[in-house]
Design a binder for these strands. Structure first.
Lengths: 150, 150
DNA sequence: GCGATTATGTTGTATTTGCAACATAATTAA
DNA sequence: TTAATTATGTTGCAAATACAACATAATCGC
């Protein structure tokens, strides 16, 4: 069978390391750029959904978002009707940092796609979305404690 | 520009989390499956090259491999001519664990490719290899301390 | 309506991770 | 040959990460 996991791993680890290093300049800790961007793009999202969206452990997201809050980049607001959830929004300061994240990500994306035609890039994106969909279900199952049987 | 980084991130984090969880059964700590597999496939590889290959920080690889050694899954042998490097090999115990890593990875790969035709999978793999190549150079530059200019 | 289950959030704790900084062998340059 | 640079390896340390366990609000099933 065609192997796709290894190049995906290489691409991810390389670009994630670069991103984390770059964002130290704006005092973002490892991983925080991910959450900041998603919150900026999905105002009012709650932590658990954020975790599911990015596929990171709930408790990791919880602590990282708490830190974003302490840094004044994100705020948690109570919901009108649901007393348990806290909705997430970027603050003004957070809104200032977000474009830097976008710019870095766009740059990395450009590096990644260098030498591919527009059609190739589109094909790649489409196939990756499909794969991401396939994998999401498995992740949620395992996160809920189910074990695989080979 | 077409966005490919996010699905790649989702796929990676989801499958990496699953893999790490599965491999707890064979007492592999987070990340160790990566190194064990590469050492099994490249007998005699040295730590630094392993780090470059998988795109993980040198010092992280160093500690993870040290632990593999302490667990008796990998051994470090001196080189004939070079007194500094230590060549890595899987032990018999390590050779027993390696197929389990292969099996899990193959399973995940299958989940990932579900619903894609053989041609689509091949296309995807080819494009991903190209992207991985593009990204590798950037990673090494940043790891050597060079900063990007946007 | 009420009990059971699920969803959401938090904290404790052990571990991995990665940047700095260092040590020294090997290689390159002069 | 020797000095400078690079390659390889390690350790200190601060921080992120993730599993387990818990708390409680919300929702579901009856």
């Amino acid at each position: 069978m065609t192997e796709i996991l290894r190049p995906i791993g290489s691409i991810y680890r390389a670009l994630d390391a670069i991103a984390n290093r770059e964002f130290q300049q704006v005092k973002l800790a490892k991983g925080q750029y991910l959450y900041l961007a998603r919150i900026a793009e999905h105002p009012g999202i709650i932590q658990d959904h954020l975790a599911t969206m990015v596929k990171v452990d709930r408790t990791t997201v919880a602590r990282s978002v708490k830190k974003l809050e302490q840094q004044g980049l994100v705020e948690k607001r109570p919901d009108e009707t649901n007393r348990k959830i806290r909705r997430l929004y970027v603050t003004e300061a957070g809104a200032d940092v977000y474009p830097l994240v976008q710019r870095e990500n766009a740059y990395s994306n450009g590096v990644a796609l260098k030498g591919l035609t527009v059609e190739e890039a589109t094909t790649l994106a489409t196939l990756l979305e499909q794969v991401a969909g396939n994998v999401a279900a498995d992740w949620e199952r395992v996160k809920q404690g189910q074990t695989r049987h080979y």
